[in-house]
């Protein structure tokens, strides 16, 4: 089974997006997406974990017998997450305080185990790395868009606290898009995360189903997807 690179990317970003289609890793996705910068930070951290763990799993795949593959994947993923967590604490200390418990919790993000099992353990290194990048980018994109939307409705800003990610040079970089100080509070609270993600899934479904209004194609698509 070989998959072309464009196909891997289309899968990660749209056709099989971990956040919008597989609906995996929702705990960190919903909890940390209250600002653009938080979304970007956790998105990049998750992407880094996915790429490293996919690469490691792909390299180990010939040595792994089926009965020990899951413990081995878990070991690889836990190690990767710890390495990323320690790096964040050492080099992006302020951001790691904001992301808090959600960086160690990347280990429980099912996306990563799912990609190790479904893709990286059956594919050569290059494809596995591409898949990690693509799935990570898809997850990060959902986090960033959701974070930006919630920040915009809740605070009226975009990119507040960018200095946490990029250093003090960017302090005060925040863009006040809407002219109010405190907006719709619900956007920042947990319900806002669910509503926002729901809207994003709905928009995606609308875009996917729109061209299928042609009766013949619509009939073909009646088959359940998974």
């Amino acid at each position: 089974m070989s998959v072309s690179t464009p196909e891997i990317w289309r899968n990660g970003l749209w056709d099989n997006n971990p956040g919008l289609v597989q609906l995996l890793g929702l705990c960190p996705l919903l909890a940390v997406s209250n600002t653009t910068v938080n979304g970007l930070g956790l998105g990049l951290a998750t992407m880094a974990v996915l790429v490293i763990s996919s690469a490691a799993v792909s390299l180990l795949r010939s040595a792994l017998r089926p009965e020990i593959r899951i413990p081995a994947f878990v070991l690889v993923i836990a190690t990767t997450v710890t390495v990323v967590d320690l790096s964040l604490q050492a080099w992006l200390h302020d951001l790691s305080r904001v992301l808090g418990i959600f960086v160690p919790l990347i280990v429980t993000n099912c996306t990563i185990l799912a990609r190790a099992e479904a893709f990286a353990s059956r594919q050569p290194l290059a494809a596995a790395v591409h898949d990690g990048l693509a799935q990570g980018a898809g997850f990060a994109a959902v986090l960033i868009i959701l974070g930006a939307g919630r920040e915009l409705v809740g605070h009226g800003t975009i990119l507040a606290d960018l200095d946490l990610l990029l250093g003090d040079r960017f302090a005060g970089f925040s863009v006040q898009v809407l002219p109010f100080d405190s907006g719709l509070l619900i956007a920042l609270l947990p319900p806002g995360a669910f509503i926002g993600l729901g809207l994003m899934v709905a928009v995606r479904q609308y875009l996917v189903q729109r061209p299928q209004e042609h009766p013949r194609i619509a009939q073909n698509q009646k088959e359940p997807v998974s």
Binding site: A72, L75, V76, A78, T79, V83, S87
Partner: peptide, 16 residues
């Protein structure tokens, strides 16, 4: 195999 992977992980984490 599992033992080797575990040892590798331990070495990486200790180094980190």
């Amino acid at each position: 195999t599992l033992t080797i992977i575990g040892l590798l992980a331990a070495v990486i984490l200790a180094g980190m």
